[in-house]
C-alpha cells in the first residue's frame, strides 16, 4: 500500500517537474518569440504605396498575400526581387497579391530601386517601423505567407530561389 502511494507521489512530482521544464523549453524554442507565429492571424496594417494608394492588409481577405520585408542595401533582397516580380506576373491573376514593405528608407532610394528592376507589385515604405515592430522583423529579407483567411501559413527568413517563390505563391493560392 505505502509503496504504491510512494510511486504515485513520485510520478506526480516528476510529471510536475517535467511539465515545468517542458513548458520552458517549448516556449523558448518551439514558439517563435516573435509576436507573429505560424497559424496566427497576421497583424493588420495600413501603408501607402509609391503611387499613393493605401493598402490595408485586411482588405485582402479572400486572396493570398505574399508579404515581403526588404531593404535596398540587402543583397539577398536584391537577388530575390526579380524572382518575386516574375512570379507575381503569373500569380496575380490567380488571387495572390504581393505587398513589399521597405523598412523605412527614403522614397528616392526605394523608387530608384523599383525602377531599376521594373517592379510591378505595390511597394510601401514603413517609415516609422510600426509594421516591422508588429511583425517583429529583425533580419532581412523576411517573407510572410498569408492565406485567404488572413492566417500566417509560413515565415521565411533568408533569400529564396525562383522555384521557392513559385512554390510559396502556389501554396497560398485561394
Amino acid at each position: 500500500m505505502k509503496k504504491q502511494q510512494r510511486l504515485i507521489m513520485r510520478t506526480v512530482i516528476l510529471l510536475l517537474l517535467l511539465a515545468a521544464v517542458g513548458y520552458t523549453i517549448y516556449a523558448n524554442f518551439f514558439t517563435e518569440k516573435a509576436r507573429v507565429t505560424v497559424g496566427s492571424t497576421a497583424p493588420d496594417f495600413v501603408l501607402t504605396d509609391l503611387n499613393g494608394k493605401e493598402h490595408r492588409l485586411s482588405d485582402y481577405r479572400g486572396k493570398g498575400v505574399f508579404l515581403n520585408f526588404w531593404g535596398t542595401w540587402c543583397k539577398p533582397c536584391e537577388k530575390e526581387m526579380p524572382y518575386i516580380n516574375a512570379q507575381y506576373g503569373t500569380y496575380k491573376n490567380e488571387g495572390v497579391e504581393v505587398l513589399a514593405v521597405n523598412v523605412g528608407e527614403t522614397k528616392l532610394s526605394v523608387q530608384k530601386f523599383a525602377d531599376r528592376f521594373g517592379l510591378t507589385f505595390p511597394i510601401m515604405i514603413d517609415r516609422e517601423d510600426q509594421v516591422m515592430n508588429a511583425y517583429d522583423v529583425n533580419q532581412l529579407p523576411a517573407t510572410f505567407l498569408i492565406d485567404k483567411n488572413g492566417k500566417v501559413k509560413k515565415i521565411i527568413t533568408g533569400t529564396m530561389t525562383e522555384e521557392m517563390v513559385k512554390q510559396y505563391m502556389e501554396s497560398i493560392k485561394p
Binding site: T72, W73, E105, T106, L108, S109
Partner: peptide, 22 residues
C-alpha cells in the same frame, strides 16, 4: 536632380556605389 542617394555609402564587390544601411 538627385539621381541616387546612398545614406551609408561604400563600393560593393562589383565596384558599384551602394549603401550598407538606411
Amino acid at each position: 536632380e538627385l539621381l541616387s542617394y546612398f545614406p551609408d555609402f561604400y563600393f560593393d564587390e562589383d565596384g558599384n556605389p551602394a549603401t550598407k544601411s538606411k
